[in-house]
Design a protein around this nucleic acid. Structure first.
Lengths: 336, 336
DNA sequence: TTGAAAGCGCTAACAG
DNA sequence: CTGTTAGCGCTTTCAA
């Protein structure tokens, strides 16, 4: 089968290759009649334009690159999946790359994507990221881990966490612990701010001399477990009656810590997580969590890229609202 | 900055574009001296060849497509990540696509990848997959869900499950329940065979009149939970003392079922899962599971593709060994 | 071993 | 509105 090219179509339709090309690209200046004829021939021949040739001439590859720190993280895999769907709706495909939170690898990947001539990049910056040198001319949108000085798209972590903590407050909790993320992470700090916002309204209900109710940790399970142990290993009257964790994985680790200490959930301890990954609904008991609008974030990122309005380098980030997903790890506190 | 092309390099090096091209492609017939000179100029100019132009002439895109049913499934996301790494080591990039277990979408995606001129496709076929019409000439390797009549690469599910069940047997279990996967799934059936293999050696220790110890289910959490309820909702003497689940998610669902029925794990019920996803080590108690060699599978798939030896259409599948990962959900059975 | 030159399949001026 | 034509940046004969 001698591969069918644009000239075959042109010949059979009795038009020039130029016209076929214009039909292909939905150029307005083609008679409806011709357009129809060409379309049917294309159909008949099963012709598909060669993307390389196209990209070479037009500087458009219909390819979007997405770089994330770790695909094993359910949050990111859902992000990628959502981006893939959004892109597919526009005839775009996705090249995925993993940076493993390694700035050098990340820079390399950006270079690869640039030379591949992708039409845009969705980037979740690595944590040890410092000087981002964005290849200019290439639209790039920062997602989730917003960088100070760059605009981007993310969930509104601050108000989301606030929402979750307020939920606990409404249930009657006052001594509410917080497991934060790594302190050099922008989203982690936003989440911390959300916690502080909420706590300011109610006071934290503990003596000034009492140990702090905030534990810093990485976002993973083990760190959450350690942080949970730290927060819970104290006398009952100064132990938090509820804990808000900055990630679902942390929350689940914290559940483990509580379990090992013989603290029943939610009877003696309420726990709320953050992220809303599938995992959250597979724990026993099911985790109450603040759900990030992952699909919306991905769709917005793709939309920005396709609209060619390369994200204004210093504009305001687009923040999307979270919502609470109630599970079985929250209840009113027991009287002391 | 006027983009640097191959002629710039050629000019500066005082050679022809042909020579530069040959250096780029490691063509043997270039003097070491020239090769060195050209290389240094390339370095100096920071020249990177245009993949589109390259691909157009040479029919090589350095792109690999990977189609999976669902990126949200941790098994697949790890597979994709591993493939990405393996590909990157060879200068290849990955285009991901999700089929959502939808045969039509899958066919469409295969078409897209074909017209993108990817150098190969890694395919985890959708479940409602029937007639796969593989575009010939395009290397494609079937992974995980092997298709009868096609060769491919997968974990050795059968012997893996056998391993897990034998582990239970060694602990002293005889009444071992099994949660199978959907019956039209090849891997699910392989896993079932592994269970039967192992049980044949020991007998299943139940009266012939007793209800069967096998429950069919989808691979997800909720299905595992239902199946667990089914297997456990019976009198103690005919209830299994151990359950092997065909997936970790099922196993976790089953843990939930046991919990709700007040059956302590592992004291009154041992559970073993299958897959070895990160999730398995985040449950309380930690899940004992049979781990698939995901990285090896991905690496092998990429290797097959790059070696251009398009997987022999009817050859024998390559089966990679699983290993057991011991958690806290298994122990010897309590005496009745 | 190297250079010269002919395209790969398509798009985008430029005419008409 | 449509046809003609000149390349896009590279690889690859074909000669030298």
């Amino acid at each position: 089968m001698p591969k069918v090219g644009i000239r075959d179509v042109a010949k059979l339709a009795g038009v020039s290759t130029g016209t076929v090309s214009r039909v292909l690209n939905d150029h307005p200046s083609v008679t409806d009649e011709l357009r129809a004829r060409v379309r049917s021939i294309i159909e008949e021949l099963g012709y598909t334009p060669d993307p390389s040739a196209r990209s070479m001439r037009s500087k458009v590859s219909r390819l979007i690159g997405i770089i994330i720190p770790d695909l094993t993280n359910p949050f990111f895999s859902e992000l990628v999946q959502s981006a893939e769907q959004a892109a597919a709706r526009h005839g775009y495909n996705i090249i995925v790359m993993t940076s493993f939170d390694h700035a050098a690898k990340e820079a390399d990947r950006i270079g690869q994507l640039t030379s591949r001539k992708v039409d845009g990049i969705i980037l979740v910056p690595s944590n040890d990221f410092h000087a981002l040198k964005l290849p200019k001319g290439l639209p790039i949108v920062i997602v989730d881990r917003l960088l100070p000085g760059y605009s981007g798209i993310a969930a509104d972590h601050r108000s989301g966490v606030c929402l979750g903590v307020e939920h606990l407050v409404k249930l009657g909790h006052r001594r509410i612990g917080f497991i934060s993320g790594p302190k050099d992470s922008v989203p982690a700090n936003d989440r911390l701010k959300g916690y502080l916002d909420a706590m300011e309204l109610v006071g934290d209900g503990r003596q000034n001399s009492a140990p702090p109710l905030i534990a810093e940790a990485a976002f993973d399970y083990e760190s959450g477990r350690s942080a949970g142990n730290y927060l819970l290993a104290r006398a009952r009257h100064e132990r938090p009656t509820a804990i808000f964790a900055s990630s679902d994985q942390q929350a689940i680790g914290c559940m483990r810590a509580a379990h090992d200490l013989g603290i029943p959930i939610p009877a003696a301890l309420s726990i709320v997580g953050f992220d809303g990954i599938p995992l959250a609904s597979m724990t026993t008991p099911r985790l109450t969590t603040v759900k990030q609008p992952i699909q919306e974030i991905a769709a917005a990122a793709v939309a920005v890229l396709l609209s060619k309005q390369d994200a204004p380098a210093l504009g305001k980030p687009l923040l999307l609202a979270c919502e609470i997903s109630e599970g079985e790890t929250t209840s009113s506190p027991q009287p002391d």
